[in-house]
Design a protein around this nucleic acid. Sequence first.
DNA 1: CACCTGACATAAT
DNA 2: AATTATGCCAGGT
Length: 113
Amino acid sequence: MKQKELTNFQRRVYAMTSQIPRGKVTTYRDLGKAIGCRSPRAVGQALKRNPFAPKVPCHRVIAANGSLGGFHGEKEGVQIARKRRMLTEEGVKFLKDGSIDLRCLWLPSCEAA
DNA sequence: CACCTGACATAAT
DNA sequence: AATTATGCCAGGT
């Protein structure tokens, strides 16, 4: 653990992520848009660090193309398998293609408004 | 302080 | 349609 303090940017990301209701998911882009960031990469970086592991449901954040993106720094592997299972347990459905069910998409702007 | 990296996205080839 | 290149923002070295 290197970074002891969090930057304002990460606080926004964690705040929004923690506001995601159970059984819902959001994308890096929409989340970034909600916090005023046009770069989904910055959002992903903040989540990948995830200093609040169980506190911040980072597994509820996915890529805009419907992919899970990554989890725990792994774009594919056991971590991704767990992420997919966790979402399924929360009620999120997946398509045969492996993409997430857009019906469960949650727009953070709804809370920001 | 400058350069590189990264859980993405979009445009161009 | 698939792959490559560039853009973007913040953090790390």
